[in-house]
Structure formats: C-alpha cells, structure tokens
Design a protein around this nucleic acid. Sequence first.
DNA 1: AAATCGTACTTAACCGGTAAATTCTAGCGT
DNA 2: ACGCTAGAATTTACCGGTTAAGTACGATTT
Lengths: 385, 385
Amino acid sequence: MKRPTMSDIAQRAGVTKSAVSFALNGQPGVSAATRERILAIAEEIGFQPSSAARALNGGKAGAFGLVIDRPADTLGSESFFMRLLAGMQAELAAHHVTLLFTMAEDAYAEIELYHQWWAQRRVDGVFVVDLQVGDRRIGVLEEMRMPAVVIGTPRGAGTLPAVWQDDRAAVEMVVGHLAKLGHRRIARVGGYAKYWHSALRSEAFVAVSAAAGIQAVSVPGDYTSEHGAEVTRTLLSAADPPTAILYDNDVMAIAGLGVAQRMGVGVPDAVSILSWDDSPTCGVMYPSVTALRRDIPAAGAAAARMLRDLAAGGRPGNQAEAAPVLQVRMSSGPALAPVGRRPAHAVSPVPLQLTAFFLTERGMPGGLRWPSPLQRAGFTVSGGW
Amino acid sequence: MKRPTMSDIAQRAGVTKSAVSFALNGQPGVSAATRERILAIAEEIGFQPSSAARALNGGKAGAFGLVIDRPADTLGSESFFMRLLAGMQAELAAHHVTLLFTMAEDAYAEIELYHQWWAQRRVDGVFVVDLQVGDRRIGVLEEMRMPAVVIGTPRGAGTLPAVWQDDRAAVEMVVGHLAKLGHRRIARVGGYAKYWHSALRSEAFVAVSAAAGIQAVSVPGDYTSEHGAEVTRTLLSAADPPTAILYDNDVMAIAGLGVAQRMGVGVPDAVSILSWDDSPTCGVMYPSVTALRRDIPAAGAAAARMLRDLAAGGRPGNQAEAAPVLQVRMSSGPALAPVGRRPAHAVSPVPLQLTAFFLTERGMPGGLRWPSPLQRAGFTVSGGW
DNA sequence: AAATCGTACTTAACCGGTAAATTCTAGCGT
DNA sequence: ACGCTAGAATTTACCGGTTAAGTACGATTT
C-alpha cells in the first residue's frame, strides 16, 4: 500500500501531472471538465500532497517552531506553556500549519536548533519565549532573517514583533488592591531576574509601591515550589515580615501558602498570598488563592497569527494582551494590626546567613551588568524598610 | 543571503554534488583528501542538508508526532504531559529527530491528522496516549501501517507495542499501605472510565481491596479540579464516608484536600488523601500529599526509543516501566475510630439526587458495552458497603 | 604487453511536486 | 481559405538531495 502521488492521479485521469497540479491548486490552464475529473480521483484515492516535495520548491515548510530552555522539572509543574500551546494550536491547526515543539538545555542549544531548523527548511518561523536581558537569540534570529515573534515583552526584542502584557497596569491593580486593604509592607517573589518580563515586573512593583507609600521588596525566584517555599520562610521569619506576598506563578504561591500554614502564620489574617498566574488549583485550595488571571491561550493565538503574517511577508506590529483580571479569593484580605498576629507556635527565625543567602542574586549570569533601576528592583527595598 | 546547498560545496571543491554526498555521508567512493576538503568547506559555509530533499528520496521525515485530544484546560493543570514530553525530547534530540506536537478536538480529528501527516510524509511514526476502550485509532494506525507506540497499557493496543505501568502492583502497594494503617473503607477517584488505564486501575483497585477485606468504591472522574472537588464533597457527605481517598492525578487530589478542609474534615485524621501522580506541589502543600511517584520522563524516553526502533524496521516488544514508589507524606495516616471524627461544623449532606448523579457514569460513549468486571468497577461497591 | 582490477570520481535518473515555455487545437475575423 | 489568438494540455526544467550505473586511470596480475 504505497501512498498515492500526483502521477498516479495523472495516469488515471489520462493527463500529465502538470495538469493535475493546476487542477488541484486552482490555477488556470485546465478545462472545468478535466478539473472536476481530477478532483474526483484525488478525493477517491485520498491524495495528500507531500510536504517534502512542496517545501523543495522554494516553498514553505508549513510548520513553525517553539523551543523552551527551562529545566524540565520547572515546566512540568507550570501550566503556562500548555495553555500557550493550546492557544497556538487552535490558530495554527485551522490553517494546516504544524508546530515543532522542543526543549533545549540552554540558549546555546536553542540557537543551534534554530540554525538547524532554518537551514534544513523544517520551519517557516519560530516563537521566542522567556526573553532575557541581553538575549543572544534575538541577534541571531535577526541575522538569519528567520521570521520570529516574541512572547512576553517588546523590551529587548530588537526588530522582532512581540505579543506583550502591560505588566505595569497589572502591578498597579494588585498593589492598589493591597493598598486599599491597608497593607503597608508587601513582598514579591519573581522569576529569574535574567528574564526581561520578570525584571520589568520587579521594577514596576517597587516603583508603584513607592508611589503608593508602601514598603516593598522584590525577590528573584526560579519558579520552583522549593524555592518559593524557601523564600517565603525567609520573608515570614524576618523581624518585620510583609503582610502580603505576590508570587510570579501559581506553583510558588501554593508553596508559599503551605509554608505560611506550617509556620502557623494565618492566611489571610497575618499574611495575604497572591499569585500572578491563575489556575484551577488556585481556586480549589483551602484557602483558595487570589490570582491575576490572564488569557494565555488568547496570547498564544495572537502570536500564531502574527507569525503567520510575518512568514507571509507582512510586517505586524507589537500587540498588547487584554488586561488581566484580579480574581480575589480567600487568601487575600485586610492587613491586621501587628499585635497578636504571630501565634505562639511560630517557627523561630532562620539563622542570619540563610537570610543573607537569599538576599544574594541567584542564577545571575556572571558578567552581566544591570541597568541601575533594575538593580535596585533586584533586591533593594523601597521606603527604608 | 541564500542557504548553501550541496551544489555550492561541489562547485567550491571542484567536484560534483555526488562526490559531496558521498563525503558527507561517510560512503566510500572519495579519497580521504577530497573528503576532508569537502567537510572543511561544508563546515565553513555552515551547510545543513535540506530535510525536505532528504525526505523526498523515500527517506525518513526525521520527525515523530504526538497528538493529545484532551480538552486544553485539563492539559494545562496537569504536569504529566510536560514531563512525558521532556523525556521524549531527551531521547529524540540526541538523535536529531524532531517532535510534532498537537492537540486535537477529538479522536476523529486526531485520526484525520494521522492521515495527513502520513500522506504528507511529515512524520515517521506517532506516539499514542490515552488509549480508550474500543479505540478506533489503533485499527486505523494498523491499517495505515504507520509506526506507532502506545503509552499506557498493552490492553487494547492491538499489534502496537506499548510502554506500560504495572497498575496492579501499584494498587497493591497503596491498598496494602492503607490496610496496614487500619483503613477498612476506601475510595478512588479515577479518570475517564473510557480510558483503558483508568478502567484497569478501577478493576485492580476493587479486586485488591476485596482480597484484603476492605470496602472500596471507585468513581470515574475527568481529571479536573472541579470534578475532583465535587466527587470528594459527595464522598465525605455520605452517611458512612471513606477513611481514605486515592485520586488519579495530583490536581484532583489537591482539590479533594481543599474540600476536606472546607468541610472541616481533618486530614489525615478523618480522611487520608493520596495522589496517583506526584508533583512538587504535592510536597509543599499543607498538609503535604502522599503520592505514588512514577518516573514519567523515563517512560517518555523508553517510548521514544521504541518508536525509533520500530520506524527503523525493528519489532520492539512491550516494555514495563519501573515500579512506582509510594511517597508517604502528611496527608495519609492511621484510620481513627469513627467516634468524634466529624466536627460539628461539617457541611450538611448533599441532596440525594446529586449523589445519584455522581453514581451515574459520566462521559460514557453511548452504545459502548462494558465487560462485566469493569462495569462493576465503574461504580459498584465491593464488600456490601 | 594485454588483461584485470580497484579506486576516485562523474553521469544520469529519481523522489513528488511547481511553473515557465511550448505545442496543439478550436474558434474567430477578414 | 488564411492567418490570428485564446485556451487546453503537454513538455521540460528545476528544487536539493540520494544512488545505481558508467568512465577514466594507475596499479597489479599473468
């Protein structure tokens, strides 16, 4: 059972394969009668054009690529990428474009993969996520002139178009919510400081808090529950702990909630817990977790549309995601007066050196220099805390 | 800046492209000197063979496919697939095989996709997950003679090789653990009953429990936190609730834990909560969740190896996963005497019709007939409970 | 010295499409 | 009847590789 080709159709229709090509592609050059006969035969024998042969003719590969180079265990617990993928698929499948999805060890391997895919004509373009400060991928992609769309932020994306979220507005929403509840000392556990989106959120978080007269600290994290738990323990063990903590993803938020409960720190009475990403789990936890909900599949679909446009020769501009919604649940509430807030069985404060460890930047690339405002956002405190 | 071809190399080396082909592929027919010269030039201009041209020569597409047809929101919260993907990638990337990953609406769309991929020579084979009772995909794949590996269970996989887990042994481990802790009435919240792996676990759960003299009920679920919460509420509201509940994934387990806490049912004192899949989140929750840990990436890697073998003409046999480990944490403990177990502020029992609703099979395909033992496992009780 | 052989390479065909150039045919005007 | 033209279908070449078959030539055999 060999797969049918255009020559097979041509033979049965008594014409040449060129005629078949014209007929199938709606080109002029065949009579209506012949065209119909050819289409009927193609349908009957279940003909599908070989994507390889198509691609060989200076044509398109009919596929886009996505490479993620986070460690696999981080990916596993995060729902972000699956939802992003789902959104992309919905858009791509409708246009018969397939997605090549891979995980890479690091940025170097990722760039290597781009070179291979492009040179082998496997893809017509790629999606770029987790944009880093001084990201080498951007320059490489621009030089290769491979169509690419950035998902995250236009900052540092060079000439590549981006689908981005207004982090500033989101931060204003969250900080405003906390300010209204009377919080005056808040913390944020972010992602890798090397990621642009994380750095920008840090910056906005500190700046917006300062403007609202709130003391704030922003700590870099690594998206894992382990680290979220560690940082939370440090924060809550401080002499003057924050009354609210905002985590950059749901996994860390849930870990933070668990730590607070273990330490006997009441949620939300003693500390409010908030998550930047929402997930069904946030809603069913006890207490349920207040979360910032964004339409991630929509962002994926938008990125897919942009990449199709770009690959077809268009020049799409940046596109902002819809504003996120703050889903207020049980884990956030009014800031209570300090008196009596720490129960008797609270865990004793952690040793100083552990605290100092967390106050050091983790996972920062060696020689990288920070822009001054970001450096402050990295781990410095606003409001003299 | 056009991409370099073999002809370019040939021209610069002063030979024909055939010689270049021989040199690059390590075939005999070129002198060592010429071979070296050609390799040097290829390296210098960054040559990469066109996958399209390669595929055109009766050759391989150099890609495998994976289609998932669960609803996107289920996928988002589950870490299983990401970890499976990570394992596959590790194996595939090492052999320069890429992965086509897509989500489909339903089995029909999935089959359609298989036809397209195969006819278009986009893939050399596919991975099949979530095998269903009477799955149509198997027959289609066998007829197409497309290499395919089943992940889950050999039951219903026809002639396709499978990577499978010994669910029976896992169930014995969990039930044995609970029996030792004194539990005499336990429940399980499974996945879709139409999935083979879920049905087999149901069967084993009921049978093993009966053998151990334990009353057991197995309820089909849909892997979502919402449903996990609903079922848990029903179970705990019963006149004689189970003292332990085993959930088929971490999302439902966490949801169940949340419900128990909301109802004031102590965990693990009044009810033990166990999850079939482990995740970092299970460990940081409070209380942390006892979970059955399997090496999912290893299963993915094994499946990838098998599919490579199969696509190369081999005849790999079924392969069992390593036995899972029961990670005992805070959420499981000894079954306490019924007296005083239900606190005063427990939620009132749900109306009878809601209970009845859950006792009806959800999501069962219309005319499907169940084998008798599975039908009993579907929702019947062992031990006269 | 002629026949034999192995090596190193070239020629040419092919995979399954696309598309420009060309031939064939029928209908048109004059 | 003749040239002219539009449309239908064919011929031909090409994309970038692989591979069977063929050729040239120096070295070995008899």
